[in-house]
Amino acid sequence: MEHSQSQDDSKGKAISTTLSESEWDEPFTEEDLQAIEAAFEAAATSSLSKKRRSNPDDEVTDQSQSARRRLPSSVLALQHPNAFALSPCRQAANIRMRYPVLKFGGRVTYSRTAVEVEKAAMEILKTVKAKTNEMGQNAVGFDIEWKPTFQRGVPPGKVAVLQICGDTSCCHVMHIIHSGIPRSLQLLLESSSILKVGAGIANDAVKVFKDYNVSIKAVEDLSYLANHKLGDSQNWGLASLTEKLISKQLLKPKKIRLGNWETKYLSKEQLQYAATDAFASWYLHEVLRSLPDAEKLEKVTADNQSEGQAVSCNYFQTEEPQAASL
């Protein structure tokens, strides 16, 4: 009798086990599971999957409820709405990536021989002189490029490219590693009446002097001007200032920025990069120049607040006697 009952219990357990396994696998076939895993494999990272599998709270641990099944960890991970939320840093980077790219859309004049550079410098002098007479402006965006070195103890190359931009129509990119600095370009650089603007331009001027013995006069650092206008004290670069002032990206790909600027001929990408930097320097200077000084702005704000308080006081002073006379 007991033996028969034991057999019945064993049989019942076997049936129960068979039914449980059947219920466990019934919702998804092996092909279904593979399809699910393949669909979410790119979304669920390996570290997140391990974390989910090691966390007992995310798994079905109640074995008594045979009708419930445990989904793949990748599916469980996607059930959490914040599982793939970006961190603040990645969110900020994502916002910056939405900025439109600043790109010079005018004519890029490339000169690499002494005659071509001489002609380009004369054109710049003529344009700046005309602008000074008509609008009283004489600032040009200025920047330089050189071939970097990646060996300790080996100095970087001489200034290879010098780019100047004074408006939205044309930027001049001069390959001075081949042409040198002819007389007209030297006059332009040493002119005290032509303001050269750029980020970190003082360092650029020092390098040009060391490499070519030409002293660049009348320079203005955009970082200093930005702090003066914005009431800040940051060391602004051209890219960060572009984002701050006009909400655009100034791309600085290392492949171009750290490339060979001493090559025989500059590539289209190098020319666009150089021209855009000079244009950005000129354009950001125009934007900053149009802003009021931070000190003046604070004074105007303080004066307006004082006037508002005076008006308020006068109002109550004129209202009190009228109330008393009634």
Rank of each mutant, 00 (worst) to 15 (best):
V208S: 12
S223V: 01
L222D: 00
S191W: 01
L185W: 04
V208Q: 12
V214W: 04
S223Y: 00
V208H: 12
S223L: 03
F209N: 14
I194H: 01
V219G: 08
E220Q: 15
G200E: 04
P182E: 03
V219K: 15
L189T: 12
I216A: 04
S215P: 00
S184P: 03
L195K: 14
S215L: 14
G200F: 07
P182I: 07
A202Y: 10
L188E: 04
L185P: 04
V197D: 01
S193E: 12
L230W: 00
E190D: 09
A226H: 00
V214F: 06
S223N: 03
I201H: 03
V208Y: 11
S193P: 00
V208C: 14
L222H: 05
D204C: 09
Q234F: 07
A205C: 12
S215T: 15
I201V: 15
I194K: 08
G200W: 05
S233I: 08
S233P: 00
A199D: 00
G200S: 08
A205K: 12
N227P: 02
L185N: 05
S191I: 06
S215V: 13
V214R: 02
A202K: 15
K196Y: 02
S223I: 01
S223A: 14
A205T: 08
K229G: 08
D211R: 10
L187G: 11
L222Y: 01
A205F: 02
A202V: 13
K217E: 09
K207Q: 11
Y224L: 12
S223G: 15
D232I: 00
L188G: 09
A218I: 06
A226D: 00
V206M: 11
D211C: 10
S233E: 07
G200P: 05
K207G: 11
I216K: 09
E220F: 04
S215M: 13
V214M: 08
L185F: 07
V206C: 09
I216N: 04
A226P: 01
L188C: 10
S193G: 01
S233G: 07
E220A: 14
V219Y: 09
A202H: 10
S193A: 12
S192F: 06
S223D: 01
S191Q: 05
A202W: 02
K207S: 11
H228Q: 13
G231N: 06
A226F: 01
K210M: 12
Y224F: 10
S184M: 12
Y212G: 06
Q234H: 11
K210S: 13
Q186G: 13
S191T: 08
N203I: 02
L188A: 10
L230E: 01
L189D: 06
V206G: 06
G198H: 03
A202T: 13
N227G: 03
A226I: 02
I201W: 03
D232Q: 10
F209I: 10
V214P: 01
E220S: 15
L225F: 11
K217V: 13
L225A: 10
L187W: 11
K196P: 00
S191N: 13
L189F: 13
N227Q: 05
S215G: 02
V214N: 05
S191K: 08
A199I: 03
G200A: 09
L185C: 08
L187D: 10
I216T: 09
A218G: 02
K210I: 03
R183K: 14
L225W: 00
